[in-house]
Design a protein around this nucleic acid. Structure first.
Lengths: 264, 264
DNA sequence: CAGTGGTCTAGACCACTGG
DNA sequence: CAGTGGTCTAGACCACTGC
């Protein structure tokens, strides 16, 4: 078949995409452009988390490309955990609600056994209030200092033993109406609640980890001695398009658990 | 073209591969079988780290499959960082020696700036001795207790400040002749030295991270006060085929550095 | 059974590298 | 310029799911 497909006149969507890069040709493969278009639909909420996206054939027809090209685009989205493929059923928008990928971002594991063994974490909300962003919080969330922010402090326990103390900061505009009951009452991952209640889907995060000594307030909440070593985990979580939507500072007890990481 | 390619009689290599799965058909795609064959050649050292492997066309001819099938096999190997593709040049066996992926497994970053800024780490070997594997070490390295093991203790410093104290345990059989001068004198990553001197290539690792308090010996070597919180990083590194080849226990100072992790 | 994703092929052309 | 990996297509068939 003939090539230079990006300039096929009958492909309106791609012609538009090409038009945006006039100076340097900035060669972008067709499948990358298709991927970007699908991504836009995901961001726009055209298909909700858990729902099926159109079949490869449908998308191929919509974008006037071959199934293989759509396939490669979806392959990359699947590799980034934005969609999930299920043979015989379809391709689905990824969600934090599914049982088998729940708590994907929580790397704290019990020293013995699996996390499934110790049952669900018990959550205790210490406080949940609306504040104005301090300089540091504003920087992390790409806000202006003083912008409204929701701050949550909570303690997570496994088998009755407190293991995690964490503070969350969320952009006030995106999380209007978030309250303690909501944080507390929800069954399952907090990020699943964010999807359902606020339409905010976390797709990626960066963590900075340090060892610190527990201060008075922290030791009381985690029931350890003052000065005990704790794992400090600072996380910035992002939605689509690398937009930061959460700053989280966690303190992990690592006497019975550890932070697990796979390198490759 | 006709399908059921795994049973094409003219494909000797694949026929052999199929023969190994008699009971359950255990359907395995052609490209997976090709991938396994290429992996075998990598393990066998048919191509050394840094060298080019045969072109996609050559491999397609060798295995009697289409280029696309070889391509998909190599795609997966590249995704696992076992090979590196370079357009216009070829596909190369991955190595820890290249500048831009050096220290891929070291996640400790300076709080400000890039790791490139602070220059190369200074290594000081505290000791390097041959010992018999304790129970715990034997378990991690899949050896029998009492088997010969090389134990190394060293301190890594950045800008003159000690930042990492680590103990390494290596299987004695694979690392015959390893000595302090070798550990100390080598320029660049230790894993690059393992490749060059012992033909051992680390492809994957698991880390368990905890916060601990420095004891007397540790505080002296890292020049911190006794009881200071330190990051404990226990790593098991694997070669091809998930064979463990190194146990490493690191203690990281995290007052000027942090352990960085990307979640997705 | 139809519909979905998954595999495989054959062939064409593009982008990049080096001699 | 030839050789490499990278993209794209069209079409066939396979494996899996659910009606």
């Amino acid at each position: 078949m003939a090539q230079t497909p990006a300039s096929l006149p009958e492909n309106a969507a791609l012609a538009a995409a090409q038009a945006q890069v006039p100076a340097t040709p900035a060669f972008s493969p067709l499948y990358q452009q298709i991927k970007a278009l699908i991504l836009q639909s995901l961001q726009a909420g055209e298909w909700k988390p858990g729902e099926a996206i159109p079949s490869e054939m449908d998308l191929a027809a919509r974008f006037r490309v071959s199934q293989g090209t759509v396939r490669k685009a979806i392959d990359e989205l699947a590799a980034e955990n934005l969609v999930v493929r299920r043979q015989g059923k379809g391709t689905f928008v990824a969600t934090h609600s599914e049982q088998h990928v729940q708590y994907r971002f929580l790397k704290l594991m019990p020293d013995a056994g699996d996390r499934a063994d110790e049952g669900p974490a018990h959550r205790q909300i210490v406080e949940c209030k609306r504040v104005r962003a301090a300089a540091e919080v504003a920087r992390a969330l790409a806000l202006r200092p003083g912008d409204p922010v929701v701050q949550v402090r909570r303690v997570l326990s496994f088998g009755g033993v407190p293991a995690i103390l964490e503070d969350l900061w969320l952009p006030g505009n995106a999380f209007k109406g978030l309250n303690a009951e909501q944080m507390d009452g929800w069954q399952g991952p907090t990020y699943a609640m964010f999807e359902m209640e606020f339409g905010v889907r976390m797709v990626r995060a960066e963590e900075k980890i340090r060892a610190v000594a527990a201060d008075a307030a922290q030791s009381a909440l985690l029931k350890v001695e003052i000065g005990s070593p704790l794992l400090s985990v600072e996380r910035i979580a992002y939605t689509y398009n690398d937009v930061p939507m959460e700053l989280r500072r966690g303190l992990y007890r690592t006497d019975t658990h550890h932070y697990r990481n796979d390198l490759s």
